[in-house]
Design a protein around this nucleic acid. Structure first.
Lengths: 343, 343
DNA sequence: CCATTGGACCAAAGCGCTTTGGACCTTCAA
DNA sequence: TTGAAGGTCCAAAGCGCTTTGGTCCAATGG
């Protein structure tokens, strides 16, 4: 079933049918009703490719996922982000196009997406410090929104981000207020912009209380359970071990807890843990009422929604003025923190 | 830059340029070389929409992700599967189109995808018992491949699946061989076909040794850390607690371990755990050499690759003959299992 | 020497839609 | 009564590609 046959069946021209279905004013309400009824009855949906070609709009948003041996971007956070963005796309009639690409071909992939014209814009994941993608997209003229920001770049761009500095500054202050002096940071990969910002927040809190920063208490890496465990275990074996941990993800926190318990310590009494919680769908921090870990919380799915909304707004309006949105975290109290143990 | 201007620049007709770039024989090798050089120099890529319209092929595969409050399909397994499939798509020049849809609109979404013509085929995730999607797709005439199978359906269809029955039968036998008699199964949601099959494997092993199946030792649910923990804890509190657990995912296994340790027991000595391990990128079962959990292992990313390969083969060949592929698991030995404790 | 073959190219139609630039008719004000 | 205005519809020209059905010319075989 295509436009032409539908039009014939109705005794109308394709023009009129198209206009009726697309809500143009120059068609009487009675025929519009007739047309939409017939379209529904025939289960007619305009061919996407034809529509795209005619309008010059792909009605699709691209997500490029680099894949490498060293580094996993296909992570739980990504899945939830996608889900959030996808909700918005579906509502707005956009498709989501995912491209998996070896990370050394990422630049080429953006260029191709652009020149082949199969997306109207792209969403940028996991920006790194000094990330080159923004300047590349700028020169390509392809609309984009970043999930995160890029330290050390001067061009302005559109982004949605969590206030990571503030989140980790607050979390650190919270632990300091509980009397902890030896606070460890188990961070994400230092190359990642968000990790850099979290560290800054952590350091800022310590500095403001004149507590020296101990490099031994700061580690970074892929945010897995094993990482949390291994790093925490190593730090707990120090002559002067930390009494509190700040971790960058729930998985790291789970690993940290395991190390704590293996050391014969009790979480929340001997050792406190504060983590960042992305509110992933299948990886919950206890229940909403009773969190296990004290955590800085911010829904990554909601971030996905906002990124998508922002990008579509930019595309639809044709406005290339960079805009941005900073999401604040909440600090939820769980069972993993308590006053620093007295020596 | 489009075909016409490129052709003009070369002093050729669009026909010839198109043919040169698409490898048709009726063009001399010298002009072909000239054309492809010019195309590369001009960074020319044929417009996807136009190509699709002209060829009638979307060069895209759809994945429909239902989303609901009760049930999370946007899970870690999904992300890795997507990554595997996406690798293949990229290599073959296909796009991956993700559609996030409220689960009560899933059927409509398939129909729309079909009639709007934006994909050439779909990959079906997480089939449930008596899943209706296969019959629907059959009647839509849209090529598809299932990741998993559907118990209780008689029509034949194409699928890629892990031999879940065998995997869990072997795992159970392994525990039985170690002397365990009280073996618990912490399963995925019973509505899921894979969960049904795993249970069957578990029960089959027990039956073959005349060990009664104890309903108290079988639970099901979303495969999260919390589920593993809560279910294991409850079972360990039974008057006659299990000495071994079979879990359906690494997260569940981690939760189970936590419950074991909370109970003051030692994993691998007092309580054994065998889990299924999907070899997720960011959620590893220890290292390849030293697994933490004894596990039935099968890469879900590889399954994604095979599904994609199979689907594309079907689409390209036009062959609608159902085909299938059964992947066997390996049973890797970790530190989580040991002989049953003597009373 | 002529008909045939095959190699290299091209004009034009078509994919299914949108959109421009009318056409036709009714209504209304002057 | 007439011209303008407005409402409703349509024919046809694209969008950028592929593909059908050629043309033209050189080579080849009888």
């Amino acid at each position: 079933m295509n436009l032409k046959t539908l039009a014939q069946k109705l005794g109308l021209s394709p023009t009129t049918v198209s206009r009726a279905l697309n809500g143009y004013p120059e068609v009487s309400e009675t025929t519009r009703a007739r047309v939409s009824a017939a379209a529904k009855a025939a289960n007619y949906h305009p061919n996407t490719q034809a529509k795209r070609l005619a309008t010059g709009r792909a009605m699709a948003i691209g997500h490029i996922i680099p894949i490498s041996d060293r580094h996993e971007i296909v992570n739980p956070v990504f899945a939830d982000f996608i889900a959030g963005a996808g909700e918005v796309y579906a509502r707005k009639g956009y498709d989501m196009v995912l491209t998996i690409v070896p990370d050394d071909e990422e630049a080429r992939a953006y260029g191709e997406l652009r020149s082949k014209g199969n997306v109207d814009g792209v969403l940028i994941h996991a920006p790194r410090v000094n990330d080159h993608r923004v300047t590349m997209l700028q020169s390509l003229g392809l609309p984009y929104v970043l999930h995160g920001r890029i330290s050390g770049i001067e061009t302005s761009y559109s982004w949605v981000d969590v206030n990571n500095v503030r989140a980790f500054e607050r979390a650190t202050n919270f632990l300091l207020d509980l009397g902890h002096q030896r606070i460890a940071l188990i961070n994400g990969i230092s190359d990642m912009d968000f990790a850099r910002r979290r560290r800054r927040g952590y350091e800022r809190a310590l500095e403001s209380r004149d507590i020296p920063i101990d490099a031994q208490l700061i580690t970074e890496g892929e945010m897995t359970e094993a990482q949390g465990h291994d790093h925490a275990r190593a730090m707990l074996a120090l002559p002067n071990p930390p009494t509190a941990f700040l971790t960058a993800s729930l998985l790291s926190a789970m690993g940290t807890r395991r190390a704590v318990e293996e050391a014969g310590l009790v979480m929340g009494r001997d050792v406190s843990i504060v983590t960042h919680d992305d509110e992933l769908g299948y990886l919950k921090n206890g229940t909403a009422q009773e969190p296990i870990f004290t955590a800085t919380r911010s829904s990554v799915r909601e971030a996905g929604r906002r990124c998508a909304t922002m990008l579509i707004a930019q595309i639809d309006s044709g406005n290339r003025q960079p805009i941005s949105e900073l999401m604040e975290t909440v600090l939820v109290l769980g069972q993993s923190t308590g006053p620093a143990p007295s020596r």
